[in-house]
Computed example of a mutant assay.
Amino acid sequence: MIQATEKWKERHPDAKMGFMVMNQLMYGMGTEILDAEKEKVEQLLRNSFADSTSLKGQPAIAAYVKYYKHFKKTYHVLKQQESVAFKGKSIPQSIPIVEAMFMAELKNGLLTAGHDYDALKLPLYLDTAQGTESYTLMSRNIQQPKNEDMILCDQCGVISSIIYGPDQRTRIVPETKTALFVIYAPPGISDSMIHNHLTDMYTYVKMVYPEAVVEQQQIISAR
């Protein structure tokens, strides 16, 4: 379903991408259990880290910080973790599928993009941006990916990049019945980190959609 280009393999030889397709998301229950789990994630962050230095010391966070630094950017998931851990912020309300993804991101530090599977034009390509492409962000702004950033494309164009995130066209919406989750993993992110992250997302989604099933799951690497 996702094919890695030779350009991606050459430019990012130690990187990976994990993905999971979940369907049967149309029969949702109440969000009470998910809300309770969300509070547990918030408390975990508040109880596990004394300061920003300890947060940055997480192996996963360190890997992303290094990648983002190459593009003169800061890793936004770290900033979100800091807001919850040290500023008393709560995980915001959203579509339950998106909430589940965001909860796992904050817990594990792994960058994840979510897409409505039925909006995709398959097959997908994991590629390296040339900096000349463009796509419409969730904010509806037109954005060119950073040159050499990792991007994911369908047959209509870019659907997400590490630095700028997912697109508007294939975003998860309340009517989404099948979702694709992709984990961008720069060097330093292990297979076990990705597997644990996917398991957490599956667990959280099942709290609202008990009939949800994993249709596909895989880790792609250049080696």
Rank of each mutant, 00 (worst) to 15 (best):
A4E: 09
K7M: 11
W8P: 01
R11F: 05
D14Q: 15
M17T: 05
G18N: 03
M20T: 04
V21F: 05
V21Q: 05
N23T: 12
N23W: 10
Q24P: 03
M29N: 07
I33P: 03
I33K: 08
I33T: 13
E39D: 14
K40M: 15
Q43P: 04
L44A: 05
L44T: 03
A50E: 12
S52Q: 13
T53D: 13
G57T: 11
P59E: 09
P59K: 13
A60E: 08
I61P: 01
I61V: 06
A63S: 06
A63F: 01
A63I: 01
V65E: 08
V65Y: 01
V65A: 08
Y67K: 10
Y68G: 01
Y75Q: 00
Y75F: 05
Y75R: 00
H76P: 04
V77I: 10
L78N: 01
Q81W: 02
E82T: 00
V84Q: 08
F86H: 07
Q93L: 13
Q93W: 13
S94W: 08
I95H: 10
P96K: 12
I97Q: 10
I97D: 02
V98K: 15
V98I: 15
V98M: 15
F102P: 02
M103W: 03
E105L: 01
H115V: 04
H115A: 04
D116H: 08
D118C: 06
L120D: 01
L120W: 02
P123L: 02
P123E: 02
Y125N: 06
D127R: 04
T128P: 08
T128I: 12
A129V: 09
A129M: 09
A129G: 08
G131E: 09
E133Y: 02
Y135L: 00
Y135A: 03
Y135V: 00
T136P: 06
T136K: 11
L137A: 06
S139Y: 05
R140V: 04
I142R: 14
N147A: 15
D149P: 09
D149T: 11
M150C: 13
I151C: 07
D154T: 08
G157F: 00
G157E: 01
V158T: 01
S161L: 03
I162K: 00
I163W: 00
P166Y: 02
D167F: 02
D167I: 00
Q168L: 13
R169P: 02
P174L: 10
P174K: 07
E175N: 13
K177C: 12
L180Q: 11
P187H: 11
P187E: 14
G188C: 08
D191M: 10
M193F: 13
I194W: 04
H195I: 15
D200G: 05
D200P: 01
D200R: 04
D200A: 07
Y204N: 02
V205A: 01
K206W: 07
Y209I: 13
P210I: 10
E211N: 12
A212V: 09
V213D: 12
Q218N: 15
I220L: 13
R223Y: 14
